[in-house]
Write a protein that binds this DNA or RNA. Sequence first.
DNA 1: ATCACTTAGAGTCACGCTGACTTTAACAGT
DNA 2: ACTGTTAAAGTCAGCGTGACTCTAAGTGAT
Lengths: 260, 260
Amino acid sequence: MSTTYPSPFGANVSERAQLPPTLAISTVIFALRPSRASGKPTLWLPLVRRVKEPFKGQWALPGGPLTSTESLEDAARRNLLETTGLAPEYLEQLYAFGGLDRSSRPERGAQRVVSIVYWALVRPTEAVLLVDSETDNVAWHRADTAGQGEGGLAFDHREIVDYALWRLRNKIEYAQIAYHFLGERFTLAQLREVYEAILGRTLDPANFRRQLTSTPQIEATDEFLEGGRHRPPRLYRYVGPPTPYPASDHPHPSTSRSTP
Amino acid sequence: MSTTYPSPFGANVSERAQLPPTLAISTVIFALRPSRASGKPTLWLPLVRRVKEPFKGQWALPGGPLTSTESLEDAARRNLLETTGLAPEYLEQLYAFGGLDRSSRPERGAQRVVSIVYWALVRPTEAVLLVDSETDNVAWHRADTAGQGEGGLAFDHREIVDYALWRLRNKIEYAQIAYHFLGERFTLAQLREVYEAILGRTLDPANFRRQLTSTPQIEATDEFLEGGRHRPPRLYRYVGPPTPYPASDHPHPSTSRSTP
DNA sequence: ATCACTTAGAGTCACGCTGACTTTAACAGT
DNA sequence: ACTGTTAAAGTCAGCGTGACTCTAAGTGAT
């Protein structure tokens, strides 16, 4: 920032390796969809098939270049809409990945790419409008196993997805983001299923209720979910801010300690 | 990532605005130094004076370009060493800033810059080896007031510092990072002063002790700090991992809630 | 209509952490 | 020996949590 690059204009091929890396934006989009096996909601994400080398034919995160006339978040939104047809309400920067071995096939002359990765949460209602799905070049995959048995995901995208999963699991424990997986009204059991799917463990329904009813951002409506086989549960609504913070933020590592 | 940029070779001036943004690395380096007024430790950070436009003469974060042969973190370390002479032990990615108005003076033809910002913590012993300090082009500034009365910091660096401060204050509450401000051995009162300086409030010494003595990463030595005017305090040592996690992570927003 | 079954939702209790506070121990300086 | 100051340990009430029990309110089968 305090210095400038050598001008790229007029550079010849031998100088190519010295050029600054190019910038790309990618996004990890999480949605909850019922598992084929158990019917319980599980985490899925849309991937696009590579149509050229490197990693041609393999699955990759949606992404693309950054133009000079849009902010990083705008670029993420535009790319998302173009490649998957999704317009997530919740979108946040995840991390900038810029290792030297990201292509994992160190080819000669291949230009180095730094990816600024965003992550997003979408509701099941938003999550159906996939572009290009008839050509099978965009498809939903299970977040935890995507790429298995297919030679893995393109680039370092498997690591990126794992990091996004870690971030989601941490952030859901202290931030109000679970509602972005659900519609406007939901039962406490549905919300609990979201937490259970993401955290991978069962939660006590009574304790879960006690915590949520003491949360001011959760408002009880006077409606109930009819049509169930048993006592109709009350519907609740989230009345807090859409995306709590402008910039990103994260949570506890596994070694969770309090103040010191 | 799934598409490629138009080649920059042979681009003419009219195409310049369509070129992808360039990448830069900057770093916010925090150190604790005694305040001039109270003598209590306060947060300081090194800044470098801009020697060319834009923002010539104003103070900016240390930074520079990213070469094609180094990772993002390596680039941050190299730039830090070149511009300030510092080699921090603790270094972590903060955020990628890429807004369109970052130069705040939208000049014609000025190339857009995306900055990937790292943040670092250094001990007072490391914090003295400043390069170029005789020319006054590198100097320590108070983290909370840097740029005041001087027309502000260059670019959006004041916002970046504020975001780094927010991150530091959050992370110190759940992660073991305070030790990176101190030497190998320290008293509990010294450690408490670190927390008080960063959090901006006093902590109860007895409760602080109780929490820390139950932390396994803190080990009591059999040495005491001699030379004080009163009862010599025991020296402690941090025996945990140097940087707990490979990638970044963050903490609670101000609306701190637990599980839901 | 009655009963069995299931889920919603409220309540109870012990435990651990925390903040506020008190008490005792150990040193330096006069 | 006394005083002032800090280190370090101890006490106590309050709060949130996990584990658990109990009651209410529906559906479907007999």
